[in-house]
Every structure is written in structure tokens, then in C-alpha cells.
Amino acid sequence: MAQQRKRTNGRTVALTSDRIIEAALRIADAEADLDRLTVRRLAAELEVGTMTLYGYFRSRDEILDGMADRAMGRMRLPAEPDAGPAEALRTVAYAFLAMMREHPSAAWLLASRVTGSPTALRGAMEAVLQRLVDAGIPGRIAVRCYGFLITYTIGFVGYQTPRPWGRLADPESIEQRRRRVHHYAGLPADEFPQVVKYADAIADLPSDGQFISGVEAYIVGMLREIDRKD
């Protein structure tokens, strides 16, 4: 296919499939709804016509699969082997969290559609299952662990993303957290006695500590099950 070209800041830039996917991820990561990523909007972002994009991707679904390829297919797992099942479960949980933080749209892709992308399956499923099995987790239990960790992370990222006070330490986020505590603490105590009493803890629900607490509780239960299988 002949490359399309556009002028940016006085220079000519080639339009490629990679640049289209990068732009799609940039738009989707900034939004809270994949429906806002339309072919028309993507074309406007790239300053080309919509039909130009169809020369690279036959449909919006193919663009979404390309986004899954990029985000999930490149999920990074540490090179060092894990020292047993518990460490492997932590490794996978934190890798899912890092991937979905880098590209929040990955969480929305996984929550809203089934991707047919072999690259995404290799990066975010096959490699993960192999990691768990290599750490000594029986195969079928490893599949269940994979299922819990990815769905738990999808839900957590979906909750945390619009609540930046849970993970960011910049002044704006700190101020947002302070306002949330003030909001919960200021509710009528006769109607919301528990919310008022634990306002500070409730404001920490979207924190990384909350994510870690859930992972650690799951690990305790799974280690017991693995021990029973031995």
C-alpha cells in the first residue's frame, strides 16, 4: 500500500498503520468511553479523510483489535523467575495493573468486547498462564487465577481512573482527596453513620493499597487450594 502523507509543523509525516493505532490509543486513553473513538474522530486527529483510514483497516473493529495488539501484546513481565506461586500471582497482578494504567483503554476493550487478536492473546494470556504454571501452579488453577486477576484489575482500574486522588501524589490529587474526605464526613451522621465515621478510609478505596489488599487476600486463599492439590 502506498503510504499517505500529511504535513505537520512544516514537515511531511508518513501515515502508517502504527501511527493510526497510536492515535486511536491516545484518544481512547483520554476518554472514559470507547464509543467516543469513532473513525471520523480518528481521521480528524490524523488530519486525513475517513476513507483514507479504511485503506489501512477495513473496519472500526480492526482498529480496536490493533489497539489490543499494541496495549496487551506488549504487556511486560519481569525477566527474573518467580520464587513460587505467591510471587507469580503478585507479578501478574502488578503487570496487569501497569498495562491498564499505561493504556486505560485496554480495560475498556477487555470489558466491552472479545478481541480476536493473536498478539494480544500471546502477550496477555499465553505468557501469563505460562508464568503461573512455571511457578508451580497447576494448569487449571492457573487458568482460574488468570481469570480472577484480569477481571479484578479491570474492575479496579475502571474504579480508580476517574478518582486520581487514589494513586497520584500531585497537589491537585491531594486536594481532591481532602475534598472527598470532607464530603463524606459532612454527610448527615444519622443517615450515614458508617460513611461519616470512616470517611478517611472510604476516600482511600481507589488507592493502590486497596488493590494490593485484594491481591494478597486472594493469594492466601489460592495457596490453601494449591496445597490441597499437592
Rank of each mutant, 00 (worst) to 15 (best):
129 L>G: 11
129 L>E: 13
121 L>T: 15
108 W>K: 13
107 A>I: 03
144 R>P: 01
98 A>Q: 14
116 G>F: 03
146 Y>W: 12
144 R>S: 13
119 T>C: 00
127 A>I: 02
124 A>C: 13
83 A>H: 14
131 R>T: 09
87 E>W: 04
103 H>V: 00
131 R>C: 00
86 A>R: 07
112 S>Y: 03
79 A>F: 03
106 A>L: 14
83 A>T: 15
120 A>R: 09
137 I>K: 04
131 R>H: 04
82 D>M: 00
87 E>S: 09
130 Q>Y: 02
130 Q>R: 12
141 I>G: 00
108 W>I: 10
93 A>W: 09
99 M>Q: 11
155 G>M: 06
122 R>G: 01
90 R>P: 05
85 P>S: 09
124 A>T: 11
136 G>D: 09
133 V>Y: 01
100 M>D: 05
93 A>E: 12
89 L>F: 03
102 E>N: 03
129 L>K: 13
131 R>W: 05
119 T>W: 01
100 M>H: 03
103 H>R: 05
83 A>P: 07
104 P>D: 06
132 L>I: 06
110 L>G: 08
86 A>C: 04
151 T>L: 12
132 L>F: 02
93 A>S: 15
78 P>E: 08
145 C>I: 07
87 E>A: 15
130 Q>E: 09
93 A>I: 14
91 T>I: 10
123 G>Q: 03
101 R>T: 15
126 E>Q: 11
151 T>V: 12
93 A>C: 10
137 I>R: 03
105 S>L: 10
152 Y>D: 10
78 P>S: 11
89 L>C: 03
85 P>F: 03
144 R>T: 14
88 A>C: 01
146 Y>A: 04
136 G>R: 03
95 A>N: 13
138 P>N: 01
134 D>H: 08
120 A>E: 08
151 T>E: 14
154 I>R: 09
139 G>R: 14
80 E>Q: 15
131 R>Q: 04
132 L>V: 04
134 D>A: 15
140 R>I: 10
136 G>H: 05
154 I>S: 09
102 E>R: 12
150 I>M: 08
109 L>P: 05
108 W>Q: 15
131 R>Y: 06
87 E>V: 14
107 A>D: 00
153 T>L: 05
79 A>S: 11
109 L>Y: 05
151 T>N: 13
108 W>L: 15
101 R>C: 08
114 V>Q: 10
149 L>S: 11
143 V>P: 02
85 P>N: 11
130 Q>S: 06
154 I>D: 05
82 D>I: 00
155 G>P: 05
99 M>N: 10
87 E>L: 09
81 P>R: 10
81 P>K: 06
142 A>Y: 01
153 T>W: 07
155 G>C: 02
